[in-house]
Amino acid sequence: MRTAITMNITDVLILGRGGQGGVTAARILVSAAMKEGKWGQAMPEFGAERRGAVVRSYARIGTEPVMLHSAIKQADIIMMLTHTILNQVDVTGIAKSRSTKLIINSPAPIKTELPTYWVNANQIAEDLGLVIAGWHVVNTSMLGALSKATGLVKLDSVMDSLEEFIRGSVLKQNIEAVRRAFNETKITTEAEVIA
């Protein structure tokens, strides 16, 4: 019988616009963690799905089964599927500390109050033919960026998890997108900042 619960958990907040696949990204992340012997949980933001609005999803990754079910209000890692929501979100308010890493899909280096890693996931989607019904598919590639920036899960674990969620011909492109995003993710340095 347990005497206490281990709370060695990494909290991840994924922000994007409704329809960008943040919930699926959280599930792929948990699946990748499971492949490394870890435990985890992926929660959507509850309520009606709203295409285009800012939506959150959460993931908790731990070395033991995750027992918590309350919402994550402040995270260790923030992943943003588009830079266009940056002015709608108080990033320091949702960060656990000033060392919380922000991983963001942006066409150019971008500066925030947090250590910020950027990758042009839209460009990767365009290059690989991953623009579907006018939407750039970036939820998968951004997990490659998260892997590079944080090491929370390995690149191979992310790539190996995709087939559980993506069927058909686009699987290959998604795997390639994850690999490219991993390789192209950079931390924003003072000299580069344009935004």
Binding site: A26, Q41, A42, M43
Partner: peptide, 12 residues
Amino acid sequence: LDGFILSHTAEV
């Protein structure tokens, strides 16, 4: 099982 927080939450 709790609506959403179990029913729609994915766990290992």
